[in-house]
Write a protein that binds this DNA or RNA. Structure first.
Lengths: 173, 173
DNA sequence: GATATTTGGTATGGTCCATAACAATTATCA
DNA sequence: TGATAATTGTTATGGACCATACCAAATATC
């Protein structure tokens, strides 16, 4: 069977598909059947990630921090004395793309590049005082408004199980 | 304290941060401390999603189907007689961006747009025979090579729990 | 000391995502 | 009925993110 573009006498499977949904049998726009899609790992994973990022941005609106920027500040705080390549690579950010990110954070006086005295090629990354203060506030916002939402939704035990499974996927898939 | 760009006499917190990691105390490039990052929902979620998509693309290399294209085929198969706006919106795809996607699938003879006889504005979407065949093969590949990997990694029970929690986040977060 | 490697950076292109605008068609309703 | 509003598919366009090639300065290697 070949598909006819104009569907002249299309008495196909379920009572003329080419007519579309406008039979009197259906009152309004009924929802589509997701079917196997709702069981697809990638699909549900992507949609959850979008919702989580969306919520993250709302919670951080006052601080104007994206998830990526937040992760940079967290990593720099935890690992002082590291250069751009090290920070970027552990976050999965390519060095060229990391430059603009740092330009942004540095222009807002949240972190600073310091030329290393050992290897004068590399820039050591450090949080400024303002950066530390902003990160502290960000952590509280994330904990109270963002991560807490997961507990309300799943419960403490399930939350930890979820994070654990996601981490396992991220590392071993 | 203000950050000095050149770090002249920077005897700061932990033994000269500005020197960077080049002390003889550490043999090579030791891994950074992820710290609280590994507990951040968004971080671990995003990284898991990237890994899963990456694996999906590898499994589908022979069929050249992206996750988004696969989801379109699945949804069209499950919901024959729907138009572009309906399919696109339930997938979270904006109509303008859906055009190129359909152009691609149609040029490969996987699906077809049929002008509706009820509403001559809308294009009814249908899978071609080749589209149905490709989708069938894709489903098998996904089931055996992709989703099965989750069972090996988490086990059947955990897999279902994970999907359930992600769906809940996607819908109620 | 000549060569290779590393680091931060620029330039550039691709893909995905979002908005505005438009023609054709249909719905609304005075 | 006919004027107006809304909808559908589409184009154009810009932004955000991601990936590659390439470069100068500095360092490592031999």
């Amino acid at each position: 069977m070949t598909v006819s573009k104009t569907a002249e006498k299309s008495s196909d499977k379920p009572a003329d598909v080419a007519k579309g949904r406008k039979d009197a049998s259906e009152p309004q726009a009924e929802a589509l059947q997701l079917g196997e899609l709702s069981e697809q790992l990638g699909y549900v994973l992507k949609r959850a990630q979008l919702k989580v990022f969306e919520n993250f941005l709302r919670c951080m609106a006052s601080l104007q921090l994206t998830p990526a920027q937040f992760s940079v500040l967290l990593l720099v705080e935890k690992n002082p004395g590291r250069n751009q390549t090290e920070i970027a690579s552990t976050l999965g950010i390519l060095r060229p793309n990391f430059v603009a990110m740092l330009d942004n954070l540095e222009s807002r006086d949240l972190c600073a590049r310091i030329r290393s005295t050992n290897d004068r090629r590399s820039h050591i990354l450090v949080l400024t005082d303002k950066g530390k203060a902003v990160l502290a506030r960000a952590k509280k916002l994330v904990a109270t408004k963002h991560e807490a939402r997961l507990n309300d939704l799943l419960g403490q035990a399930n939350r930890e199980a979820l994070i654990g499974m996601l981490a396992k996927i991220a590392n071993e898939f």
